[in-house]
Structure formats: C-alpha cells, structure tokens
C-alpha cells in the first residue's frame, strides 16, 4: 500500500509521464493508451470511494470561477473591445482597429511607464518580501512575538487618505525626512524627493513597503506554522546551527507560503496606483508614471478610453503572465520532502 502510494505521488499538476517512467514503465504514444496504463493504479483504490468524480470537483471549483468571471472577466472583455475603438465616454465607441496599440509603441510616455513599472516590480517585491520574511523569522516563537509584530501590521490597517497625508509631510522639501537628515547632519535636507526621478519612484516604493511589509510578515508567520516542530528538533539533535536550520529546513518548508507572498507582491507591484497618483500623479512630466497611472490618466483625465483600455490590456497581460509563470511552480503535496 505504501509503495503504491509512493508511486502514485500526487502532484498539483496531476499524474503525468515522468511518474510512469520512474515506476519502471515505458510511456505509450497515444493519450488513450496512456490513460489505460494509469488505470491499474486507480484499480488499487477500487475498494475506496472514487476520489476524482468530475462533478464533485466541479462543485468545489465552480463558485469561485463563477463569481470571478462574472464580476471581473466580463468587464475586462469589455475593456478589450474598447481598446480597439476610439471612445471619449459619450455616445458610441468608433471602431479603430489596432490604432491604439500602434500608438502604445510610439508614445514616449510609455517608455517612462514601462521603466518605472519594472522598478516597482523589482524593488516593490524584493524589499517588502525580504523584510517581511526577516521579521517573521525574528518574531516567531518568542514570547510576545505578536507585540513585536504589531508596529509592522498597523500601517496596513491605516486608511489610504491618512497615509498619503503623512508621507506628504515626510517627503516634502523641508519635511519630516528633511528634518531627520538635518538633525543627523546628513545632506539632502532640502531635497524635494518627489520632484525628480529616480528619487520619486524610490521614495514611493519605500512608502509602499511601509504598509506591505506587515502583510508579508503575517503570511510568513502562518507559513512558519506549517514547519513541523518535530523536524526542527530533529535537525537540532543532528547538530544544525541556527543558520543551517534556517537555510536548509525552514526556508524549503516555507515554500508554499513564499510562493503566495511573492506572487501577491508581484501583482500588487504591477497594479500600484493609489500611492503614485496621490503623491505625484505620475509627474512631474511623466517621470514617475507607471502603466497603472498611465491607464488611469488616459482613460479618466484625457478621456481617451480606447487608448487607456489598450494600456489596461497590456498591463493585465503582463501581470497575468508574470503571476502565471511564477505560480506554476509545483507545490510538493507530500509535505516534508524525503
């Protein structure tokens, strides 16, 4: 039984060819023949209820799919349609073919937008995730760990309006950050952080990380609970020091949650809008604009719905691909790797 369970190793992707190979069988050519070969494995479970009745599985998956498709995919399809038209919000859209997409490639604003979006993805993922992970590990399992975590969780709970005002205080020339630099005797106390690139984008990434780190920390703490105590103790008995324990035991076991945190961070970074819009509106000029703010300004400020929709489609495709590629990473269903 155990051996068969080993062979019938469940992977999130389902049973595929390589397993058959490792089980010492050759892989037949036709899909039909392959399916017939799989059946012997299933036969060993004949005495138990069928696991994968399609209708039952569908029942679990359907509510999520229905809700998300109805409320998000349908509006997206509408946007895709609008991206091929010339439309200012009134009357009817006029079909325009791929003119908007052509414009995307010639628009100098797009160069800035793509550059800044790339900066957001890299910095906006690395900084909050690394900080969140560090904090989770440092605060996990110690007494009053929850209290040590609290300062990092509170920023996420603050409303956007208050946060924007505060960072405005901090980043304006002669603002709070300037005061701190002056007190410490460091240069830059009169700098207008938000007026020049790349300072503006970096400052906003930091403001965003201030809120995002706590979320990541929380999720990593949840993930750390999946690390079995017994395994950690075994490692210690084997003489592993703290760093080795971390690197070779904790981090690999945290993988399911790391995938979640990084996946979310990628999506959030690509979609970042509120903080940029409130602080700089993508300016001055278009120096701090991102794909998300460009989409907004073209649609709602310039009333160029078609062009804005084309940018939205581009942004969605990029975000979708990035997250799909990242999340495709297999999750070991077996729990602890043997």
């Amino acid at each position: 039984m155990q051996a068969e369970a080993d062979r019938f190793e469940l992977k999130a992707g389902g049973v595929r060819g390589p397993h058959l190979k490792s089980a010492g069988l050759s892989v037949p050519r036709s899909a039909h023949a392959r399916r017939r070969l799989i059946r012997p494995f299933r036969a060993s479970y004949r005495s138990k209820p069928q696991v994968t009745k399609p209708t039952a599985t569908a029942g679990f998956i359907a509510p999520a799919v229905v809700v998300v498709v109805a409320l998000m995919y349908l509006p997206f399809l509408y946007s895709v349609y609008i991206s091929f038209t010339n439309y200012d919000g009134l009357g009817s859209p006029r079909w325009d073919g791929i003119a908007n997409y052509v414009q995307l490639f010639h628009d100098p604003e797009m160069v800035d937008a793509i550059r800044n979006t790339a900066v957001w993805v890299v910095a906006g993922v690395v900084v909050p995730v690394a900080l969140g992970l560090g904090l989770a590990i440092l605060t996990y399992g110690i007494r009053h760990g929850g209290w040590y975590r609290l300062p990092f969780l509170l920023p996420y709970a603050m409303s956007g309006a208050g946060v924007a005002v505060i960072w405005g205080f901090i980043l304006q020339p002669g603002g709070a950050l300037g005061d701190v630099l002056k007190t410490l005797g460091l240069p830059g106390s009169g700098t207008a952080w938000l007026s020049y690139w790349p300072d503006s984008t970096i400052a906003m990434v930091i403001a965003s990380a201030w809120q995002a780190t706590g979320v990541n920390c929380l999720l990593f703490v949840v993930g750390l609970q999946a690390v079995p105590v017994a395994v950690l103790e075994a490692a210690e008995i084997d003489g592993a020091r703290a760093f080795t324990k971390l690197w070779r035991v904790t981090l690999p076991l945290l993988r399911p949650m790391t995938i979640v945190v990084v996946g979310l961070a990628i999506v959030a970074a690509l979609k970042t809008f509120d903080i940029v819009w409130v602080m700089t509106q993508g300016g001055p000029g278009y120096t701090s604009t991102t794909l998300a703010t460009a989409m907004y300004s073209q649609t709602f400020v310039a009333d160029s719905y078609g062009y804005g929709a084309a940018i939205a489609v581009l942004l969605t495709v990029v975000t979708g691909l990035a997250s799909a590629v990242y999340l495709k990473q297999q999750v070991q269903v077996g729990g602890v790797k043997r």
């Binding site: 799919v65 998000m72 946007s79 996946g263 989409m295 649609t299 997250s323």
Partner: peptide, 15 residues
Amino acid sequence: FMVTFGGAVFPAQML
C-alpha cells in the same frame, strides 16, 4: 486555479 486567481490581476479602475 489561474482562472480564479486571475481576478486579482485586473486593475480596479478598469472595472
């Protein structure tokens, strides 16, 4: 799974 998670990908303003 991606169909479900894909809902997070759309920018809110677009909706």
